[in-house]
Design a protein around this nucleic acid. Structure first.
Lengths: 209, 209, 209, 209
DNA sequence: CATGAATGAGGCTTCATTCAT
DNA sequence: AATGAATGAAGCCTCATTCAT
């Protein structure tokens, strides 16, 4: 029993160890340039070991998205928990959550798009694919719920909450992507946070009546 | 000589033939999964021929971005040409241009991000890199100019026009990316245009006083 | 640990296995005609494995030169060890060493020239390049030292020992090269050893007072 | 008649034009790194044209050796023409001829060895191969004849003249090869001529009674 | 479970050669 | 005869994955 559990925990710890390493390597080099050996080295494991915990490179990659989506979900659930919170407070919570998600792993957000983009591979096992779908879906739903609350109270324009959520998420990821790519191109200073704040402000303003 | 000219035209036609094929293949498979042989086959040419027109895979890839950026630039220049146009007419022109850019090549927008992302390699010749930088820069500048006009007239909030342009562009590309990836995930219907319209509406509303 | 050591030895054995195969294939076909696949097949390994032991084709190639230079160095050091040996005995030792070097690997001498010729590429890692330089240098120095001894004792003409060493080495390699190429051209019998003996005799005679 | 002849001459001129270009390119880059396009560009012709004059790359390459061997033959024939010249004068002529051969085209001598070495290809047409064999043979024979003369007069040691000629040629080419490769390795000053003089002096001294 | 050496398929790219103009 | 665009075979090398220890 106890021994079973400890094994379980150890196994999970290993998984995390690999995920952390993978996050770093994928962030530094991107999916294709990152090699399994890079990740193994970073995790201080051997390449073979990675395959004991992840079916293949793509599934390992997908796990990162899962991880951040789980975190996002958690945060959004927390915001929605208190049903009586006034809309603007909820919005505050939402924005704070988004900032934290970004801080949680700035680069992985970018990689998530590669994952979702056509480039990425259909080799994902259905289970992982399903889990991603579900988490992404429930994240959007949670955001939509926040907006729905404001709409119901007449604070926001009367649009489908999910559409607003999609746009909000698009804005969030678009800004990260664009500001980051500007840095690659220009090496100038990193205005991301300020730009993000302004973007959110415009968005909230834009949906307010 | 007429003969000289015809050769020139033929050469350009070949380039286009390759670009069209590359666009299709890159869009279908993404940069890394697409092989030069795929593209050659699609273009009904031999692999070696591609290298007569493009230095390497990445430069061929970059050419696609160049092409769409050139188109965007052209359209935006047109909008800015008439200095006396009222801000809201200019905005109309801007939105129309963005729609057309998307129609011009929906998938390539997505690939542009791969190009700019950290994943992308420095094998690009400096000239091509410079040209991309310049075109991207002048596109943003043109968009900023449109907003600047509205700001000066007191129609829009007093923020740095370039920041607004960055956010606008982020929103545009974020929506494309997100809606596209939703389709990959969900295979549901394509709400992109409607979502984009709403996104733009919110944005304009958001920056209006 | 014994286990550590055995692995070390096995790894070295593999290296040798590859080197032996490479020697054969390079000797048969020359650098450019020899393919890595040829070598892998000869070594009964897969192509990828070669790259676990050698950075690239050129470095594998260079290793062969290194190996023979190391052997030459060893032999020459041995000759020079006994400082009191009379000059003619040292010359005997030198000639014997040269013969053995040739026996050690007749063809590789020829390939060494390809390595050094302008044709050869700079893909060699600096370390390997340095090592070759150093070994070649110390070989020549060792030969020069032998001659210097004879010069000091008034047995040989008073010329810079290094110049004599260069000429001696040139003669040695020139004879190998020429006799070998005659065989390619003519397929006649192999007079190399006899020619070499005569060449050395003339040389020694030529530098004697 | 005249028209036929002129065409013949023009064709020969073209051949020479190509040979000159090939000499330069092969000398700069070596056989494998030199491309037919390089040569065509240097000759201000198109790649296709080269194939009107030479069957393939290798045969073009072989022509260079032919050319220098022809020159050497000519010079040696001249030395041997005057049968009554005393041996030491003939040697002077020989040495002078060798120096001129080197000046005629320093690098091509080196390439000749690549040509003759195992690396080089059996693709040569039999005619070209035969011609090379013949020219090389008659050059050696001419050199041997010079030595034979001295042997008969009792000035040189009694060895087979052809063996001496082989060794002489080996020495000559060995010095060129070695000094050149030293330069590649060391980038130091070019001592070739001085070394060559000393080498010849030692050789002559060595074969003298 | 962990290892890490070995695999081998497959990609990008070059370039000698051809052939329609 | 000359051209030069097109060909396509072939080479080097990488790296995800496996498997004997």
């Amino acid at each position: 029993m106890g021994i079973q559990e400890r094994k379980e925990r150890e196994k999970e710890r290993r998984r995390q160890q690999i995920i952390v390493a993978a996050k770093k390597v994928f962030s530094d080099k991107g999916f294709n340039k990152a090699t399994m050996e890079d990740i193994a080295t970073e995790a201080e494991l051997s390449p073979g070991t990675l395959y004991l915990y992840f079916k293949n490179k793509e599934e390992l990659y997908a796990s990162l998205s899962l991880r951040i989506l789980q975190y996002l979900n958690l945060r959004l659930a927390h915001v929605n928990k208190d049903a009586d919170l006034p809309p603007d407070k909820k919005i505050d919570g939402l924005l704070e959550a988004m900032h934290d998600v970004y801080d949680f792993d700035p680069m992985i957000i970018i990689n998530m798009f590669h994952l979702q983009s056509s480039e990425t591979l259909r080799n994902l096992s259905p289970e992982v694919m399903d889990e991603i779908k579900e988490l992404a879906g429930s994240s959007i739903a949670a955001i939509a719920k926040i907006f729905a609350c404001g709409i119901k109270q007449g604070a926001y324009i009367d649009q489908h909450p999910t559409a607003l959520a999609d746009i909000f998420w698009s804005l969030f990821s678009g800004v990260i992507l664009w500001e980051t790519s500007k840095n690659v191109i220009d090496k100038k200073k990193d205005y991301l946070k300020k730009t993000m704040d302004l973007a959110f402000k415009i968005f909230i303003n834009g949906i307010s009546k």
